[in-house]
């Protein structure tokens, strides 16, 4: 795996206030990287420094091997993105806007423009003035603009803002396809873990200007499970079934809720197949099982809140 974006020891001050503190991250080709943090954590600031909109106080950023300060044009040639809101020229049509950006980049044909328009699903409305677009449509236009020149690195700052569920789904598909099939490095920032979970391969969590954790989604899922697993049973004769189980499997805890429902909990160290043994036992003891539901008492969101606990209440 090759590094697409390398951020080393990045610091940023606004006046005397330090907004970024020694941010260091490496993003690889072919991955969707989620940049996660509460409002005011410094996501947009970091992204603006990657694309050269803000000066770097100290530290370095390289994109595809180009130092963004020393070789701005080279770095920009392999980057595309949206920073904050997708503001394009309102008095022009979507297509006129795209042509504006096409003229500033190399080798973009009319076919390529139409291809991208098709990809983001704007074909029917591309000849309308942007002033008539909804926020979601502007996001799509912004994405089209970012994709025009086949960038190796795609940087999207809160791109799901204003998108409808279908839009989010298709964005997800586009990003995954770009990363996994075309080897693009996609950086997506968000303040919502639930979105990231479905979209990203890895996430970096930023808090008050510092990177607090970089993990793959799988690692996070494991973390979210914690140390115990709980299942909710709907059965015939709940009390009898619960007693029979406890007798046989002493390590279980739990409680009966009513005639037909009980819950039980066991250590996750017992493994994923342990529940199969329980069910098999009940089955052979002639208990009728209607349903068994896992009780996930902790979402990834909770993990995120836990990691960012100190900053959750107050805007950093």
């Amino acid at each position: 795996m090759n590094a697409a974006i390398e951020i080393r020891g990045l610091n940023k001050y606004f006046g005397k206030r330090q907004v970024l503190n020694n941010v260091t991250m490496t993003l690889n080709e072919g991955e969707v990287f989620g940049f996660l943090g509460p409002n005011g954590a410094g996501k947009t600031t970091t992204i603006k420094m990657i694309v050269g909109l803000l000066a770097i106080d100290s530290g370095t950023i390289t994109v595809c091997g180009h130092d963004v300060e020393k070789d701005f044009v080279g770095a920009m040639e392999c980057m595309g993105g949206i920073v904050e809101n997708p503001e394009t020229y309102k008095y022009m049509t979507g297509l006129q806007n795209l042509r504006q950006y096409a003229r500033m980049r190399k080798g973009i044909t009319q076919e390529r423009i139409m291809e991208v328009v098709e990809l983001v699903g704007l074909s029917n409305r591309i000849n309308e003035k942007v002033s008539k677009y909804s926020l979601g449509m502007k996001q799509r236009l912004g994405l089209a603009q970012a994709l025009l020149h086949h960038p190796k690195v795609l940087i999207l700052d809160e791109p799901t803002n204003g998108l409808d569920p279908a839009g989010i789904k298709s964005l997800r598909d586009i990003l995954k396809k770009l990363a996994h099939q075309e080897g693009v490095c996609v950086l997506v920032s968000s303040h919502m873990m639930s979105e990231m979970e479905l979209m990203c391969d890895r996430v970096g969590i930023i808090m008050k200007g510092s990177i607090v954790d970089v993990k793959t989604i799988d690692e996070l899922v494991a973390q979210s499970r914690g140390t115990t697993l709980t299942f909710h049973y709907h059965v015939e004769k709940a009390a009898e079934a619960f007693e029979a189980l406890k007798e046989q499997f002493t390590e279980l805890t739990g409680h009966v809720m009513d005639d037909t429902h009980f819950e039980l909990t066991y250590s996750s160290e017992l493994g994923d197949t342990y529940i199969g043994r329980l069910n098999h036992f009940l089955f052979s003891d002639n208990f009728t099982i209607y349903t068994v539901l896992p009780v996930t008492n902790r979402h990834l969101e909770d993990v995120f809140l836990e990691i960012t606990a100190e900053g959750g209440e107050q805007i950093a």
């Binding site: 044009v73 394009t88 020229y89 950006y101």
Partner: peptide, 14 residues
Amino acid sequence: SQGTIKFLLLNPVK
């Protein structure tokens, strides 16, 4: 004022 500067400068042009 319209925020379009961010898109204008997000291009490989000095």
